[in-house]
Design a protein around this nucleic acid. Structure first.
Lengths: 147, 147
DNA sequence: TAAACTAATTATAATGATTATAAAGAAGTA
DNA sequence: TACTTCTTTATAATCATTATAATTAGTTTA
């Protein structure tokens, strides 16, 4: 199934006139296969062995290309570096306040919130962003052990 | 009314053993009076004339102090620098995709989303973050003029 | 009030993510 | 093949944020 996602992504890129280079192929593949939400540097490091000469700038450049094509979402939290998430179906993220792990969860879209926001502010709404924060089961267990 | 907010904030700080320095007073006052959501640098520049010797580090340090006391929220978007928002009652933000302006709006909390997220992921939920994106009335007007 | 202690500020340097630039390389096209 | 354009690489620059050390100011206690 992830093979099909990669193929779709490549088609999307080709259709918008973006060349498929080996580096782009590898970055996309890594993003799709990765269950986590890697930083640019993590992607860079992961592909280092396959592309010993690849520059960090290439990773950043291509992540921007993907973002502009709507294939990838950039997640910005308080910490230093952005994380990147291959866009599949709509999902939200819940983030552990302790260890920072990010887990996907599904929830029907918040159209009603968008409507209210639009009504109150006069904005034409395009999208929204929602994240939930808490403590993941693993950290919770460790906390209870500690007592 | 904003005077009362400042007074409350100072009490909160004092109660948690934080000293009230002129710089802290000024930063808080600026944050409360400011309708916008300034960056650390904007705060620094705004107070430059009153505190010619103040260091940028002081602004950052104190914003962190305020954040830890729950007085101030840090807003991190994709762009370079964080923005800071004095916490009043619960409100959300809607952000213009064109000009970047940030407008507050009120909406009942999303407890139901938090419950579902907790149920699905097993996290103990602490909080959430929601932002809506769109085009503000001003930018919308200019766009329609342009046609 | 003065001495003593602690916290806060300042000035400066360091860090680290991201972006800009220019040269070299690769892909697509005529 | 020659030409054009896009992409990559290598490197340097930028810029927000943090760390450090010395100085200063608040607070407490005698």
């Amino acid at each position: 199934m992830s093979g099909a996602m990669l193929k779709d992504a490549l088609v999307t890129l080709k259709e918008s006139g973006v060349r498929i280079t080996p580096q782009r192929h590898a970055i996309l593949e890594f993003l799709i296969s990765s269950e986590s939400h890697p930083t640019a540097d993590e992607i860079y490091k992961a592909l280092e062995s396959d592309f010993p000469n690849m520059s960090v700038a290439t990773v950043y450049n291509n992540l921007r290309v993907f973002r502009n094509s709507g294939l990838v979402k950039e997640l910005t939290y308080g910490d230093a570096s952005s994380r990147f998430d291959f866009v599949t179906h709509d999902h939200y993220h819940i983030i552990c306040d302790e260890c920072g792990s990010i887990v996907d969860f599904h929830h029907p879209g918040l159209e009603e919130v968008e409507r209210l926001a639009s009504y109150v502010t006069g904005f034409k709404v395009n999208s929204h962003r929602l994240e939930v924060y808490g403590v993941c089961p693993t950290c919770e267990k460790q906390a209870s052990k500690a007592n």
